[in-house]
């Protein structure tokens, strides 16, 4: 089965690159092929100019953090962390010193002889991180290391990891399906779709200048409206064709505002007239689903509007992400 094709990715030293995509897009396969658990049919993988494509996993010098943490239940915390150094024949003293150092760094002092089966999820995660770091790997690979943690722990860890990354500068490839995680942690993000890298750029570029409608949708601009741009530059909401440029506009729900009053349209902004069909309370105001003959979008408003009300959705010009629309696309 072909999972990945035509993937080119370069990671600079000290850089943290996030592979972002929905499940089944090939991001984990890409990570596993760097680690050596999957052999690519063609192409090459290089670390520091050394071709590692045909090396077995143990000779690659990468350290992987697994989604399940993959801690060995028959070993203690220290046994898990020191395993890699034992494999490389480090002295007992050197291993003990390094393990102590890492335990202190991970705030796990006194846990050295505990069996890993007795640890909480957060503690296991820290042991897994310590194990991956123990051998000072050239490249750190992380497969959704935070997906098993509580939301609050995850947020704290994100900040902590970002600070650590800035200070130590480990080269790392980080697989995630969480766009917020990718945005806050990564120096660069590679968005994957169906086995291809569809955009590889800085978080700001990915967020504000998505290369395609797919990336825009994946990064949260999930409202899509079919448009025509007339010769004079005005945008018309229509699914049909006609004279002008066929476009699709993506925008984020929180950049669109629902206006119950009929104010005058400002220059370049997009106006959609429709009816409120669904209401969601989201804490900071409400989110409304507004339907018209040509569009079906979600927009934000701070005030309460009744379902069934006729409203206008207003999207400022700079919040619109415009992409060409194929002739058959709705």
């Amino acid at each position: 089965m072909r999972v990945l094709s035509d993937v080119t990715l370069d990671v600079a030293r000290g850089e943290l690159v996030a592979l972002l995509g929905s499940s089944g897009c090939g991001k984990t396969t890409l990570l596993r092929s760097i680690a050596g658990f999957v052999t690519p049919r063609s192409g090459s993988i290089r670390v520091d100019g050394r071709d590692i494509t045909s090396l077995p996993p143990e000779k690659r010098g990468t350290a992987m953090m697994f989604q399940s943490y993959a801690l060995w239940p028959h070993m203690s915390v220290a046994g898990n962390i020191g395993y890699g150094m034992r494999m490389r024949g480090a002295s007992k003293n050197a291993i003990a010193r390094r393990v102590d150092e890492l335990l202190a760094l991970m705030q796990l002092q006194g846990f050295a002889s505990r069996p890993v089966t007795q640890l909480s999820g957060g503690q296991r995660q820290r042991v897994a991180r310590a194990r991956a770091r123990a051998g000072d790997p050239a490249l750190l690979l992380r497969d959704e290391p935070m997906s098993n943690l509580d939301y609050k722990v995850r947020i704290e860890l994100r900040h902590e990891l970002r600070a650590l990354q800035k200070r130590i500068g480990i080269t790392a490839v980080y697989v995630t399906h969480d766009r917020e995680e990718a945005l806050t942690l990564a120096d660069r993000i590679a968005v994957l779709d169906a086995g291809r890298v569809v955009q590889y750029a800085s978080p700001e570029d990915i967020f504000h200048r998505p290369a395609s409608a797919f990336v825009a949708g994946f990064m949260g601009a999930d409202n899509a409206v079919a448009l025509m741009r007339d010769r004079d530059g005005t945008l018309r909401v229509t699914r049909g064709s006609g004279d002008g440029e066929r476009l699709v506009a993506h925008f984020r729900s929180d950049t669109a505002r629902v206006d119950a009053s009929a104010s005058q349209p400002a220059n370049g902004e997009l106006r959609l007239h429709g009816r409120v069909v669904q209401t969601l309370y989201v804490g900071q105001g409400w989110r409304y689903r507004v339907q018209s003959d040509d569009a079906d979008v979600w927009a934000h408003a701070e005030q309460r509007i009744d379902e069934g009300a006729s409203v206008a959705v207003i999207v400022p010009h700079d919040a619109l992400l415009l992409f060409p629309r194929a002739a058959t696309a709705g």
Binding site: A63, A70, G84
Partner: peptide, 27 residues
């Protein structure tokens, strides 16, 4: 035995045989 436990050992520098001896067999 979860595959990832063996993969973690290989990834940490254990050859196939060492991995079997130190992780798979004890588990």
């Amino acid at each position: 035995i979860d595959d990832s436990l063996e993969e973690a050992a290989r990834n940490m520098g254990a050859s196939a045989w060492t991995c079997f001896r130190t992780v798979t067999l004890p588990l």
